[in-house]
């Protein structure tokens, strides 16, 4: 999606001042279907129907509705982590976030990564976190609560950061039109394997050594010392 326009209506007071009118770009108003130049004078595009939302999107695997379902799941559970005080619930919300991310990988035609995400992240890292919670929870009634001021300050920093990044994002031209469909005979797993043994051979071997070092180091550090 890209909107061509000559002069955005707020350019005179834009905090991020580099506005190149010759480039196609995204604007926050365009994202909700309004004309970025004259949002009040122009008629917005018709509101999409449910049938349209469920039709397959050429730029991704699946329908737009799937994207919005995954986005809602990911964002809501991520912010539920911030406001949850129970560490076990936080790990469950993390699981939901990871599953949403796996859904994004599927929609972005990275099926191998979606499987790896579910197996390694949801099946390995999350289990590790749950084990850590169980091993460090001798008195369950003890709760580590952040004070309301800490919580408010943290949420403020988070929301401020999100607002700043989104502001920068909608002012940045993105290659929205550059999408080209992947050929039907393309096998991504084969490409990943080739890449691992050619261009990415050194990182691949380094990751193997790293995993060995981490395994030995974690076992050494977590052992119970005598006395």
């Amino acid at each position: 999606m890209a909107i061509s326009c000559t002069q955005p209506w707020w350019s005179a007071r834009s905090p991020i001042g580099f506005l190149d009118p010759s480039r196609e770009r995204h604007y926050s108003l365009a994202l909700i279907g309004l004309d970025p130049i004259h949002p009040l004078q122009h008629k917005a595009a018709p509101v999409p129907t449910l049938a349209q939302l469920m039709t397959a999107d050429p730029a991704q695997q699946g329908a737009p509705l799937l994207f919005y379902a995954c986005a809602t799941l990911t964002c809501l559970s991520a912010w539920a982590i911030v406001f949850s005080q129970n560490i076990v619930r936080m790990s469950v919300y993390l699981l939901l976030t990871l599953m949403g991310a796996a859904g994004f990988y599927l929609m972005l035609q990275a099926e191998f990564l979606a499987a790896v995400q579910l197996i390694v992240y949801a099946g390995g890292t999350l289990i590790l976190i749950v084990f850590g919670i169980m091993l460090t929870n001798k008195n369950p009634e003890m709760q580590l609560r952040a004070t309301p001021m800490e919580l408010g300050l943290g949420a403020l920093v988070g929301v401020g950061l999100a607002a700043l990044l989104i502001l920068a994002l909608v002012h940045t031209p993105t290659p929205g039109q550059g999408f080209t469909a992947v050929p039907a005979d393309y096998q991504q797993v084969r490409a990943i394997g080739r890449s691992l043994l050619s261009e990415n051979l050194v990182p691949f071997e380094l990751a193997a050594v790293l995993l060995l070092v981490v395994m030995v180091g974690a076992a050494y550090m977590a052992r119970r010392r005598a006395g």
């Binding site: 909700i32 279907g33 737009p64 999100a162 993105t174 929205g176």
Partner: peptide, 21 residues
Amino acid sequence: HPALDIGLTHYLLVTTTLVAA
């Protein structure tokens, strides 16, 4: 409608929310 045309910006907005969280 742009909401039907999922592009890079949509994904970037989601990940922005995620990183802020």
